[in-house]
């Protein structure tokens, strides 16, 4: 009886397990293996030997990879907290306008169903130095036109543009999750807080945020993972050749992986790409574990 049930359970799990084995576990293991070949050429299938750390050493010394790591960390470090805070505020504000809530929810959700590349292109127009709406609005406040994305744009300008795009793009899903989370908070807590003379800010800080903390944890883990994989937004804003106002100035880890993967005809490049992706894998895993440990003390229930 027991055995039969087990077999049935495995059968139910089989479709997912097979797909994961083919498209997740095999590539992951294969990436490990490829990252350990020295001078590997996939076309001929030849390598100069196996050295577990050789490729890691090469890319960690590569200034482009360092730049990719710095860019990726800035994107994740800034866009995640800012977008979580903004989406919380928006979700809470939406709650106080029940009549227009549906309309605004739809508006805020539109970016989620829109292609990131298309959004990037739209933003590229908006950030255009001469014709963009951003500089037009800044002009009303007496700010002279900023070169956001042009060939001589400063690092800060392009990064700000990229961050704004990333934050805006990430709001939709978070707002959706937080709004539904807010609906599940018993209205009585808010009535009680009113009776207890709590100000709006106190209610947000002491009641809403703690009661949403499990969701905030979930959102922060998933969006850190998402942000570490940033690529589409860079391509959308700058195109997949330049990856920045100057060549590769906004390169990310994933973009680095793509570049070296595309250079697989050169000796050892595919192994560099594999090594970079393994590094990204470990960074993601470590940050997620840290987040879970830290927030265990701060998340209630």
């Amino acid at each position: 009886m027991e055995k039969k049930n087990n077999l049935r359970a495995w059968l139910y799990l089989a479709p997912l397990l097979i797909l994961m084995a083919v498209f997740t576990f095999y590539p992951l293991i294969n990436a490990f293996i490829v990252s350990s070949y020295k001078g590997y050429l996939p076309l001929s299938g030849t390598a100069d030997g196996i050295d577990l750390f050789y490729n890691y050493g090469v890319i960690l010394k590569n200034p482009l990879f360092k730049k990719a790591i710095i860019n990726t960390f800035i994107i994740a470090g800034v866009s995640v907290p800012v977008s979580i805070f903004l989406s919380l505020l928006i979700a809470v504000s939406l709650k106080s306008i029940p009549k227009l809530k549906g309309l605004f929810q739809t508006i805020y959700f539109l970016p989620y169903v829109t292609n990131t590349i298309a959004i990037g292109m739209a933003f590229a127009f908006m950030f255009h130095e001469d014709y963009g709406v951003i500089n037009l609005i800044l002009g009303w406040f007496g700010v002279s036109p900023v070169n956001w994305l042009g060939g001589t744009a400063t690092y800060a300008a392009q990064m700000i543009a990229l961050l704004i795009l990333t934050i805006w793009n990430g709001l939709a899903f978070k707002i959706l999750v937080f709004t539904s989370g807010l609906e599940n908070i018993d209205k009585q807590y808010y009535d009680a807080a009113k009776i207890d003379s709590a100000s709006k800010w106190t209610v947000f800080k002491r009641i809403t945020v703690p009661l949403l903390s499990p969701l905030i944890l979930y959102i922060s883990i998933t969006s850190v993972i998402g942000a570490l994989k940033a690529y589409n937004s860079v391509v959308g804003l700058f195109g997949d050749v330049k990856l920045g106002a100057q060549n590769n100035s906004m390169i990310t880890i994933v973009a680095f992986v793509y570049q070296y993967k595309d250079g697989y005809t050169d000796k050892g490049y595919i192994s560099y790409a594999a090594a970079a992706s393994i590094i990204l894998f470990f960074i993601t895993a470590v940050i997620s574990i840290l987040q879970t440990i830290v927030s265990k003390k701060r998340v209630h229930y």
Binding site: D186, Q188, Y189, D191, A192, A193, I195, D196, S197, A198, S199, T202, R206, I207, P210, L211, S213, H300, Y301
Partner: peptide, 24 residues
């Protein structure tokens, strides 16, 4: 006001619950 389901803040201790109105 004492609510029917008490509406105690679940993430606060008894002390914090009682203290909350005084803080405000």
């Amino acid at each position: 006001l004492v609510f029917q389901n008490y509406a105690l803040y679940p993430h606060m201790t008894v002390r914090e619950n009682i203290l909350f109105p005084l803080e405000n």
